[in-house]
Nucleic acid binder design. Structure first.
Length: 822
RNA sequence: GCGGACGUGGUGAAAUUGGAAAACACAUAGGACUUAGGAUCCUAUGCCGAAAGGUUUGUGGGUUCGAGUCCCACCGUCCGCACCA
């Protein structure tokens, strides 16, 4: 009997010998090599999820396959362990985050090993290990030295529940990505990374990548490049200008008002005396609003008049200046020109406050009411109008700089010292790692600082420059820091002198295949690309992009078709499945469910299908648990071989011989198809091909199946179900080395091809007969065969053939004069 | 609202890219073997029909000898963005 719970631990132990030496990759591979990477997990308290297993199985199949193809394969694993989930879990269980993380990692590692994933455990990394985060801090210093890290007091998103600042990327629909609490605005002094400096490169280099279109689009939209013009409007009676950004400078003659964002510095300055109270009141309220409240206002606009006017540079008209929170301070110039006739939002605003609406572009695209430009197509007029009003061509991005400080304990300390005399003083590289101190109270304080602020022995230091009293930066880095470069550390995980040895880096980078969920599209994947570009500029790495090819696995839904969640009670636990059916069945089922990128609902019955299949493979190859296929094939045929199979009728003998020939052909076809499917990541059809092969083997008496038939099956199956394959390879087929070290089987093209085919005979495009024919026959032969068919004759009788379409090895279509179908 | 993807049996899905629709599984029904079966094996299974045959890829149209695949319109589902000037 196939007993996964017996054989799986046995082979897991076998693979674990010498710290998994069997899967250890060379530092500098000489021949063909491939870097296959998983998005490393966050070791939360819940353990591995079926979603992790989906992606990890896919990458494991590829890794095992490429090893057998003779590639040196780098397939590492590690832990992304800093950040809120681990810390919150620690708070919740009243344990120390360090302990919690160690415990969770242990559990995760065990689960991954139970799945039989072929990781190179000698390269395991952990982002919370000081030997690791030394280099995260080192990269921060490089960012600082290159002007890409700065401190500034800016309005930021604050999560009142997590008690920390959030990056824009971590705020989804105005809510904290982690806990769902509405984020509020706060003005805080923060470390900020200048990702906008790389905006253009991050956008352009997307062209170098073989990534899912939707991820590229998301990054493109997130970066949000737009070309336009900055235009200045002189404020009437004051020495001030309102600078606006517009992509439609050609509509400037249609401007009927200007809007300043509530935070705009000019607001106070230009507001007229008797409007001050009202404006101040509005600004105050606007600043208190959370992003969520601002968003939920929808089309409803609010605003207040400042009493001031500006001169429209195009037509010298006086236009009122308003304040409204629909103008955003952190995009463009924080001020906009209102063109109600040609902008939906402006129209809503104008209607609400009864401001004039002026048409300047008519439906055929030519300008009116535009002075000297009347009658010109608006697109052509852009540059000229810009010149006319003294506008300056500008490129703006939606992308904003990355707010990098977190007011929490469990993160990398920022290696900066603040001295009253010398200002910001970065630590020397030799002083890294700056270790996160052990601490008793690590609850977030909510006081805009991390709990590190309370440890005076750690905070108070001598300034490295002037030796005077100074303080350490007390905030920590966000969860995304450690994951922005981890794929490099796998190449050289123990190097204390360098982040990564350049030779090793050159040998392996870039990552050839990166598999993970789509949820990181504008977070991790954008941040990692950003850091990589700095490292590229510093010649630490040799490629401008870290991940050449990205594959998103689709999420696995609960049996009810809904997203798995504790509250819905539809979570499938991998442990339960392994217990019942074994890791191999779990791996295969997740691959068999459907194409890797699809969202797929779990089906408890479905896994039984692959479990049965593995049972059939086991009994076939190990020659036990017969039932052999000795009964008559089908339809209750009379002349069948008798039970012991000794007396065989000539008819059955002939059939058997044909069967065996067919099986050999099937073997080659199976190799071909499975190979192609794996290379194209079509694991579901690779598995169904293996099933078909096994079904065919069951068609012939067991004793007629030779060793090669079985070996091919085991080899092809081994990336999918490695434990079973190992058991069959070593225990049943008596081989001495691991099936994973064997060579992938090869096929002969001439045997993988059928030499006959079914000729589809169509009359006017309708199938009327299907006739078996030799491959390669020409049209004349095909016509002859087709015309002999009674069925075809019936239809062709008395019909005049107008045209014959012949498709080689496929079909012949007779088109007749009178179309009797339509 | 804008952008993208998708729509095939009772279910998950296949379909060499314009050439036999529904492979492989699940489920269901019948049978075999069994003390027993929720194990295993066999058979059937898109729909209508006893059969011959007809018919079928969200709906409607188009291109073509031929459309699940290409084009147009509509309906529906999912995802992303969402005051970005």
């Amino acid at each position: 009997m196939y007993q996964p719970n017996k054989i799986e631990p046995k082979w897991q132990k076998f693979w674990a010998k010498n710290n998994y030496k069997i899967w250890h990759a060379q530092d500098k591979p000489k021949g063909k090599h491939i870097y296959i990477l998983d998005m490393f997990p966050y070791p939360s308290g819940e353990g591995l999820h079926v979603g992790h297993i989906e992606g990890y199985t896919a990458s494991d199949i590829l890794s095992r396959y490429y090893r057998m193809k003779g590639f040196e394969v780098l397939h590492p694993m590690g832990w992304d362990a800093f950040g809120l989930p681990a810390e919150n879990y620690a708070l919740h269980t009243k344990k120390n985050p360090k302990q919690v993380v160690a415990q969770n990692i242990k559990y995760f590692r065990k689960q991954l090993q139970q799945m039989g994933f072929s990781y190179d455990w000698q390269r395991e990394i952990n982002t919370t290990d000081p030997n690791y985060y030394k280099w995260t801090q080192w990269i921060f210093l490089q960012l600082y030295k290159n002007g890409l890290a700065y401190e500034d007091e800016v309005p930021v998103n604050w999560c009142p529940s997590c008690k920390t600042v959030l990056a824009d990327e971590e705020v989804v629909e105005g809510r904290c990505e982690r806990c769902g609490t509405a984020a509020v605005r706060k003005k805080l002094k923060q470390w900020i990374l200048k990702i906008t400096a790389m905006a253009d490169r991050l956008l352009k280099d997307l062209d170098l990548l073989d990534w899912p279109a939707r991820v590229k689009t998301m990054q493109k939209n997130w970066i949000g490049r737009s070309e336009g013009f900055d235009v200045e409007f002189k404020v009437v009676g004051q020495d001030a200008y309102v600078k606006v950004f517009t992509t439609r400078v050609d509509t400037i003659f249609g401007v009927t008002y200007l809007v300043l964002a509530p935070e705009h510095e000019l607001v106070q300055k230009i507001t007229k005396e008797n409007y001050q109270d009202e404006v101040k009141d509005y600004v105050k309220k606007a600043l208190q609003k959370s992003d969520f409240e601002r968003l939920s206002a929808g089309k409803e606009k609010s605003g207040v008049f400042t009493g001031a006017y500006a001169i429209n540079p195009s037509n010298r008209e006086r236009v009122p200046i308003w304040v409204s929170d629909y103008a955003l301070i952190n995009y463009g110039t924080g001020a906009i020109m209102g063109v109600p006739r040609h902008d939906e939002r402006d129209l809503a605003f104008a209607e609400q406050f009864h401001l004039p609406v002026k048409e300047v572009v008519v439906s055929d695209g030519t300008l009116i009411n535009s002075g000297p430009f009347d009658g010109t197509p608006y697109k052509k007029a852009q540059e000229k109008i810009a010149l006319y009003v003294g506008a300056k061509k500008t490129v703006r991005y939606k992308l904003r700089d990355w707010i990098f400080s977190r007011q929490r304990y469990w993160g990398e300390p920022i290696p900066i010292i603040k001295c009253e005399k010398c200002g910001l003083v970065p630590l020397k590289e030799s002083q890294l790692p700056l270790k996160l101190p052990e601490i008793k109270k690590y609850e977030p304080t909510g006081k805009n600082e991390s709990p590190l602020a309370d440890i005076s022995s750690w905070v108070n230091v001598k300034c490295p420059r002037c030796k005077g009293p100074a303080k350490r930066e007390v905030n920590t880095m966000p969860q995304w820091a450690g994951s922005s470069w981890y794929f490099l550390r796998y190449l050289d995980p123990k190097d204390n002198k360098k982040l990564v040895d350049l030779k090793k880096e050159k040998a392996w980078m870039p990552v050839d295949i990166y598999i993970g969920g789509v949820e990181h599209a504008v977070l991790h994947l954008l941040y990692a690309r950003f850091w990589h570009k700095l490292l590229y500029d510093l010649k630490i790495v040799s490629t401008p992009e870290p991940f050449v090819r990205l594959i998103n696995q689709g999420i696995i839904l609960g049996e009810d078709g809904e997203k798995m969640s504790k509250s819905r009670g539809n979570v499938i636990s991998p442990n339960d499945i392994i217990k019942k059916y074994g890791a191999d069945s779990l791996r295969m089922y997740e691959m068999f469910m459907g194409p890797l990128p699809f969202a797929k609902p779990w089906n408890s019955q479905g896994i039984i299908g692959v479990y049965r299949f593995l049972n059939r493979v086991w009994s076939l190859v190990s020659n036990s648990d017969l039932p052999l296929r000795e009964a008559p094939p089908a339809g209750g045929r009379q002349s069948s071989p008798n039970k012991n199979g000794l007396e065989i009728t000539p008819e059955a003998k002939k059939k058997l011989k044909e069967n065996l020939k067919e099986i050999e052909k099937a073997r080659h076809k199976t190799i071909k198809k499975v190979t192609e499917d794996i290379e194209n990541l079509r694991f579901n059809t690779a598995i169904s091909t293996l099933m078909e092969y096994v079904n065919q083997l069951y068609e012939v008496p067991r004793e007629k199946i030779n060793k090669q038939h079985k070996e091919t099956l085991v080899l092809l199956l081994s990336p999918f179900a490695p434990h079973l394959a190992e058991e069959l390879w070593q225990a049943a087929l008596k081989h001495r080395k691991s099936v994973g070290l064997e060579r992938w089987p090869v096929f002969k093209s001439e045997l993988a091809e059928e030499n006959s085919f079914i000729l589809a005979v169509q009359i006017n495009g309708k199938i009327r007969d299907k006739i078996k024919a030799q491959k390669g026959i020409d049209e004349v032969q095909a016509q002859k065969i087709a015309r002999e068919s009674k069925k075809v004759k019936k239809y062709l009788d008395k019909q005049k053939i107008k045209k014959v379409i012949f498709v080689k090895d496929r079909l012949i279509n007779f088109v007749t004069e009178i179309k009797n179908n339509k």
